[in-house]
Amino acid sequence: MTGWHAPDDLVTRYADGSLAETDAWSLDKHLERCGRCAARVSHAVRAGAAGPSLAAVRAGVLAAAPAPARRTAPTPGAPRALGGRLTRILWAAGPAVRGTWAGSVVLVALGAVALAYGGGWAGARPLLLALAPVVPVAGVALSYGRHSDPLHEIAASAPGGGLRLLLTRTAAVLAVSAPSLTLAGLLLPSPGPRLPAGPATAGWLLPGLALTLASLVLSGYLGCRTATAVVGGGWLLAVSAPLLPSGGTGLTAGLTEQLSLYFTGAPSQGGWAAATVLCALLLAARRTAYDRLETM
């Protein structure tokens, strides 16, 4: 805290909507941390032209709300507001984690294990490793935007609704997909003697992180869904294009060799690490571009 507070004329122009957009977003960030200025803005809004309308809306909401239930004294030592805290965490995590996407990730992992053991298919492991880097990218596409989140307009217009919200939901997507897919890879059998050894089970984690951050960087230029489609489609094309002439067992062997080229060895992993750092720096440099992400 710097001790700075918004001048009265700045508060007045913010309340009546005449403040420049860049200054309004800067003041939004300050109001998120300063209760004194937030109370002054609230008072200015109630005293302005919108005050009577807001008072009428508030009165109507209170009149329509059911009477509060009688509260009993909490049990000594019992945790308080556990349900409310969990609700806030799930809301911040985003639609992908709350909805069917998390279940789809689990089904993909279990499906790979079932194909390997129940169907005896040797290509289950390389196929899982090929799809794993784009699973978080798809989760990001389903976590942010008006098409997937019914509360998107409210969330995106909040002071922390830009890059902070996008990174929060991206972290939630990674927290679900990374353990599930890595565990499934550990459960899959090693390739037979006729197939190449293939990359390590966790070899996809750094490429997956780099592709996810790359999709966030492109989101600042193209929008979230378009960026994730470009990154995800580009990765699938890079993996599958060299395999088009192959078929049958040769397809599985070719996919394994292709993944080994992308995932195995210090040069490839070092390249993914450099790409991850570069994308993180670009995100930090263009963080203000995400305040109006859905208007692009």
Rank of each mutant, 00 (worst) to 15 (best):
S177Y: 00
L151S: 05
A155N: 05
A171V: 05
L166N: 13
D149A: 12
I154K: 10
L151V: 10
S177W: 02
P159M: 05
T168E: 10
A172K: 06
S157K: 14
R164V: 09
R164E: 10
H152G: 15
V176C: 03
V173F: 03
P159Y: 11
P179W: 00
V173R: 02
P150C: 12
P159V: 14
A178L: 13
S180Y: 00
R169W: 03
L166T: 06
S177A: 07
A171I: 08
V173Y: 00
L163Q: 15
L166I: 08
A155T: 14
G162E: 06
V173S: 00
A156S: 15
G161S: 11
L163A: 08
G161F: 12
G160I: 05
A175G: 15
L163M: 06
D149V: 07
L166D: 08
S157I: 13
G160N: 13
D149S: 07
A175H: 04
L163D: 04
A178E: 10
I154R: 08
A178W: 14
L174I: 00
L166R: 06
L163K: 01
A172R: 10
L167I: 04
A158V: 08
L174Q: 03
P150W: 06
P150Q: 12
R169K: 13
L165I: 07
A175L: 09
I154W: 11
G162S: 07
S180A: 05
P179Q: 03
H152F: 15
E153S: 11
A172Q: 05
R169F: 01
T168W: 10
R169D: 04
E153R: 15
A158Q: 12
G161E: 09
V176N: 00
S148T: 11
T170E: 06
G161L: 03
V173L: 01
T168Y: 11
E153L: 13
S180T: 14
T168N: 10
H152V: 10
I154L: 14
I154C: 12
A158N: 09
P179N: 00
P179D: 01
E153P: 07
L167D: 07
L151F: 12
V173G: 03
L163W: 05
L163F: 07
L151I: 08
L167H: 02
A172P: 15
L166H: 07
S177N: 07
G162W: 05
L151K: 12
R164T: 15
S180R: 00
P159C: 11
R169N: 11
V176H: 01
L167P: 03
S157R: 15
R164I: 06
L174D: 01
L166E: 13
L166S: 03
T170G: 00
I154F: 15
P159H: 15
G160P: 10
A156W: 08
T168H: 14
L174V: 02
A158S: 13
V173I: 01
A158R: 07
G162F: 12
S180F: 03
P150T: 14
L165M: 14
I154D: 06
L174N: 01
L163I: 09
S148L: 14
